[in-house]
């Protein structure tokens, strides 16, 4: 039993080890990564991809695991990010306390917003969460009391965080921090899925009425999913702020929430690797497709084609629609199906 589970975990461990040693690799992979693999450009790109993988994992607790179509998850990610930067720069709190403040506030926010929004179900729930997230977005953009920095966003107070995480040459440490975050998020969700609470969420997703008959308190199970998702998302927001050196209002927008949905569905909802791969691939394509379209290979194409290819969201949006139609289990589900076919 132990041996088989070890074998099952082996590919994951190999990938993890490879990722951990990546900052020591000096080769360049032209086209795939900007500059040397261990250069700051590549490492920051990969670190951000990891953080997005973690965001997707956190949203999947709500959408994929519990079946709640929430359009308000950006709220919690942004809360983690902004409350950290505000705690550090405006309230001069030390980093550990700032993290506690950010996570506690995210928790309270999740309880309040989730508590209200869960009074309605289905599509109405989606719209209400959307409205709350929008309210947060408006507040952030209005910059009350110069707290949030408005459209400019908020720069992280670098003197308040360990010097190991600051500066171009310390990019590897930020990379490891991001990698650590996605591993923790992965482990948390994996544990959750196997726990009693995880089973309750699966029951609610499959059939709410039957879950209620089985003795689950459906409202509490859903609220728990929102809270757990919010906390992981908030933690991601904190890591995002540290790695990228500040908070950006983009994290509060509806587009960001929609992007989370796209990531999870793209990778495969309700699958650990689905969310991870979805989040990673989404951010990677979003940042790299622009490079590809301006590369010389496309130089011969008509101007409008080049401009269309220069819009990552067009390609991601179309890819997303294709996945919804032809691979409802996402890319990982498709991969698993192809693997099974090959073995058969």
């Amino acid at each position: 039993m132990r041996a088989t589970s070890l074998i099952k975990a082996l590919p994951g461990l190999v990938v993890l080890v490879a990722l951990v040693v990546l900052p020591y690799v000096t080769v360049t992979i032209p086209g795939i990564l900007p500059g040397r693999v261990n250069g700051p450009g590549s490492l920051t790109l990969l670190a951000t991809c990891f953080i997005f993988a973690g965001f997707a994992l956190s949203y999947d607790v709500i959408f994929g695991r519990t079946g709640l179509l929430s359009f308000g998850h950006a709220l919690f990610v942004a809360a983690g990010s902004y409350l950290l930067t505000i705690s550090l720069s405006s309230w001069d709190l030390p980093l550990p306390l700032a993290i506690v403040v950010a996570l506690t506030s995210t928790l309270v926010l999740a309880l309040v917003v989730g508590g209200i929004a869960l009074r309605v179900g289905g599509i109405a729930f989606a719209m209400v969460t959307l409205a709350f997230a929008q309210a947060a977005s408006i507040i952030v953009l209005r910059n009350p009391g110069d707290l949030t920095g408005g459209e400019e966003g908020l720069v992280l107070d670098r003197s308040a965080i360990p010097q190991l995480l600051v500066g171009v040459h310390n990019a590897p440490y930020r990379y490891w921090l991001a990698l650590g975050f996605v591993v923790i998020a992965w482990a948390l969700v994996a544990l959750l899925v196997r726990s009693r609470a995880g089973h309750a969420m699966a029951a609610v997703r499959e059939n709410e009425a039957r879950a209620a008959v089985l003795g689950y308190d459906v409202y509490k199970v859903k609220l728990l999913a929102i809270v757990v998702g919010a906390l992981i998302g908030g933690l991601g927001g904190i890591v995002h702020a540290i790695v990228l050196g500040g908070s950006t209002p983009h994290l509060t927008t509806t587009e960001f929430t929609l992007a989370l949905l796209v990531m999870v569905v793209l990778g495969g909802a309700g699958r650990l690797w689905g969310a991870v791969i979805g989040g990673f691939v989404y951010h990677y394509l979003d940042s790299r497709l622009v490079e590809f379209s301006s590369s010389s290979a496309l130089g011969a194409m008509p101007d409008i084609v080049q401009r269309l290819l220069g819009q990552p969201l067009l390609i991601l949006g179309v890819l997303f629609i294709i996945v919804v139609y032809f691979a409802p289990q996402g890319l990982t589900g498709l991969g698993a199906r192809l693997l099974r076919k090959e073995r058969a």
Binding site: L258, L261, L313, L314, L316, G317, V318, V324
Partner: peptide, 12 residues
């Protein structure tokens, strides 16, 4: 989901 994808692609 399809309409979400459409809205993203249309803006692009």
């Amino acid at each position: 989901l399809v309409t979400v994808g459409l809205s993203l692609a249309a803006v692009a």
